[in-house]
Design a protein around this nucleic acid. Structure first.
Lengths: 198, 198
DNA sequence: CAGTTACTGAACAGTCTGTATGACATTGGT
DNA sequence: ACCAATGTCATACAGACTGTTCAGTAACTG
């Protein structure tokens, strides 16, 4: 006996309505009634499922992270030895499918709480992976893995943010990953057009 | 005849109260009355100066950006040829002085609007500087300066976020800049402890 | 088909908003 | 030192939104 179909319908509708409306008007400007109206659900029903709109947003984000985590698992396993770019690529694909949600999360809607959930999840996983990788290959990191992870995630998210906000026909994900990887590996000078420093 | 002293006092008090309270309870949770109470100012006075709390937050942020811009100008002039790290260093110093405000902005409080103001201002200035530098040195960027700027800013802000959120006696700013610059110049492998790739 | 469970619509007090008011205090310029 | 201008204050107000409750109705599961 899975979840009641009505429950599923209501939750889904409310989640979608939230995403649409935040994109249109911004999170703060929204009313619970706006959301229920768009979702075609009674206001009382909203409170049967969620404490308030923050709660709804948080759950929608949590679901997204769960999904992302599942999709990333195999890509990460393939990157055991170094930076293959596979996880980033998979994240870009995920972002393309869930573009609107990614947009509002990355914008920091909801006082940045969903964004922090996102960043922390990524940073935590990345730092762990860095540590494991260093140990496997018996090398000693020159920079605290925690900080290194934050920087690497910050870099990826900057690109991701730029990518999902573009309205023109966006660059193919593979192309973006290529640039990002080159940038991360070869450094700024290379990207700027200079020869790499000695 | 500059601004009326009473006006200055009220604005200042309201701004400080906002920062304190957002740090304590988060932007959304705040009431205009909470702010005026903390600032020891009548509620009516608040509306004489600001449309709503978003407006107040936006102005506080705008002031911060103006100040930052002024402090960064000489450092940028010194970095005409390449990545000296001087602007980053100056930003870190600024962040140390205005730590609380930096924290709440970088957290994305206020639906990320102040954060976007901050990021956009930095990215715009950085991209412009990249373009100018490329032209001066007659090199052709291998990556779109716009994107490159976003990535570089994303990286800096990730570090900045990490730095201002640390509660332990924080690393000296000079040390942080050194790491960041190494990271940006030599790339991930170096930072991870591997030898740089060929 | 029957029992359970979710949805509905309406009503409620309580809180916050944004605006308006006239009395009062502080200010800057003469 | 004084005065006209201007900022501040306390209070009051309607309107909107919140979060809860409840009885009636519909939909689902087994």
């Amino acid at each position: 006996m899975a979840e009641d179909r009505r429950t599923r319908r209501s939750r889904r509708a409310l989640g979608s309505a939230l995403v649409e409306l935040v994109l249109e008007r911004g999170f703060t400007a929204l009313t619970v009634e706006d959301i229920t109206e768009r979702a075609d659900v009674a206001r009382a029903t909203f409170y049967a499922h969620f404490r308030d709109k923050e709660d709804l947003f948080a759950r929608v984000t949590a679901d997204l992270l769960t999904e992302l985590g599942e999709r990333l698992a195999p890509a990460v396993a393939d990157s055991a030895v170094g930076f293959t770019g596979k996880p980033v690529l998979e994240m870009l694909r995920h972002a393309r499918e869930e573009r609107d949600l990614y947009r509002i999360v990355l914008r920091g809607e909801g006082d940045g709480k969903p964004l922090r959930m996102f960043v922390d999840a990524c940073a935590r996983a990345t730092a762990e992976e860095f540590r494991a990788r260093a140990e496997r290959n018996a090398v000693k990191p020159r920079i605290d893995p925690e900080l290194l992870a934050r920087v690497w995630v910050g870099e990826q998210l900057a690109v991701l943010r730029w990518w999902v906000e573009q309205d023109a026909p966006s660059l193919p994900a593979e192309e973006v990953v290529r640039m990002l990887l080159n940038l991360a590996m070869r450094g700024r000078y290379w990207a700027s057009g200079f020869e790499p420093p000695t």
